[in-house]
Design a protein around this nucleic acid. Structure first.
Lengths: 192, 192
DNA sequence: GTCTATAATTCGATAGAC
DNA sequence: GTCTATCGAATTATAGAC
C-alpha cells in the first residue's frame, strides 16, 4: 500500500462514513481526491474491493485483539474489561472504520459477505465463551447467555458514534472507568 | 391508507430491511409485489416518500411513548423501566421498522433529514432529562450525563436485531426482567 | 499517472393505451 | 388499476491518447 493509496483510503473512509457506501459514487470520490474518475482505478480494482479492504482490515484488529485477551491469564471479568478497552481504543483511534463495520457490511456480496458474517460470529462466540466462564464461576449474574452477550456488546458497538464526529469531554482512562462501572456495577446507586 | 397500500408498505419493509434502502430498486419492489414498476406509483409518490413514511411513522410511536412516560407519576428509575418496556414492545412488534430507523435514516434528504435529526435529538433529550433527575435524587450513579444516556439507550437501540429475524427463547416479560436487572443492577454477581 | 471519451448497464419516473 | 414502452439521468468501469 503506497502513499497515494493511503490518501485515497482515508478520503474514502470520510466520504463513505458521511454518505453511506451505496450513496458514495466514484465521481464523489474523484472530486474529493481532486482527480478524474478513471484515476481511482489506479489505486483500487473496483468500488466493491474498496469496501472489502476497509471492513476486513478493521475486522482483523478485532480478531487479533480478542485472541490476545483469551489466551491471557486474567479471569473472566478482567478479560471482559480488556474487551471494553479494545472497543474504547478502536472507537477513539478508528471511529470511521468502526462505523462502516456496523453500518455497511450488508453491501458486501457473495462469498465476501458470507466470510464477513462468519468472522462476526466467530468474534461473538469468543466473547460469549468468556461470559459463559464468568457465569460458571458465579462472578457474573445468571441469565440467558445469548442475551448477556448481546447486552454487553451493544453498548460497545455503538461507542464509535461518540468519537466519529463529536468532540469529547474526558480522556480514555476516565471513559473506560465509567463504562466499566456502568456495565459491571449497574446504573442504580447502591452506595447509600 | 387503503389495503393495497398496506400490503405494499409491509412488502417494502421486508425488502428494504433485507437489502438496504439504496440497494432496493423499484423493480425489486415490483417483482415482490407481482406487478409492474409503474403500478407502484399508484400507492406512493416516490421512492423517497416511502422511506419518509416508514421512518416518521415509527418515530411517532417513540415520541408518543416517551411523552406518556414523562407525564406519569413514576420516579426516575421506574420511568426508565418504562422506556425499556417501550423498546422491548416495539422491538418485538415492529423490528423491521426499528431496523430502518437506525440504519436507513441517512438516506433521507433535505428538510426531511433535518427534521428527523431534530426529532431524534428531542427524544434523546427527554430520556436524558429523566436520567438527570435520577442522578439529582441520587438513585442513579453519578457519571457523565451524556455518556449515561448513551449507554442506557445503546442496548435498547440494537434490541430489534434479536427479533427481526431470529427466533427467541423467552417471552416479553422475562426478556424485560433480565434487561432491567442487567442495566440497573449490573453484570457482576454481588449476591454472594 | 493523468486526462478525454464513451461503453454498458441500471436507475427512478412517466406517457398513454386499455 | 394495470400494462407496454420508453425517457433522461446516473452509475461503474474501460479504452486509448498523452
Amino acid at each position: 500500500m503506497n502513499e497515494k493509496h493511503q490518501i485515497f483510503y482515508e478520503t474514502s473512509l470520510k466520504l463513505v462514513y458521511k454518505k453511506g457506501f451505496k450513496a458514495t459514487t466514484m465521481r464523489d470520490l474523484a472530486e474529493e481526491m481532486g482527480c478524474d474518475v478513471s484515476n481511482i482505478y489506479n489505486y483500487i480494482d473496483s468500488k466493491q474491493s474498496l469496501l472489502e479492504e476497509i471492513l476486513f482490515n478493521i475486522n482483523d484488529l478485532f480478531q487479533e485483539g480478542i485472541d490476545l485477551i483469551r489466551c491471557s491469564d486474567y479471569g473472566p471479568i478482567d478479560q471482559l474489561k480488556q474487551v471494553v478497552r479494545l472497543y474504547v481504543n478502536l472507537s477513539i483511534e478508528r471511529p470511521l472504520e468502526l462505523s462502516l463495520l456496523t453500518n455497511e457490511w450488508r453491501n458486501l456480496k457473495g462469498e465476501k459477505l458470507e466470510l464477513f458474517i462468519s468472522e462476526r460470529e466467530k468474534f461473538e462466540h469468543k466473547v460469549k465463551s468468556i461470559i459463559r466462564e464468568g457465569m460458571r464461576k458465579k462472578v457474573l449474574i445468571e441469565m440467558d447467555l445469548k442475551l448477556a452477550t448481546f447486552l454487553f456488546l451493544s453498548a460497545l458497538r455503538l461507542l464509535f458514534d461518540k468519537y466519529a464526529l463529536t468532540e469529547n469531554p474526558f480522556n480514555k482512562i476516565e471513559l473506560e472507568r465509567q463504562i466499566n462501572r456502568y456495565i459491571f456495577q449497574g446504573f442504580t446507586n447502591n452506595s447509600k
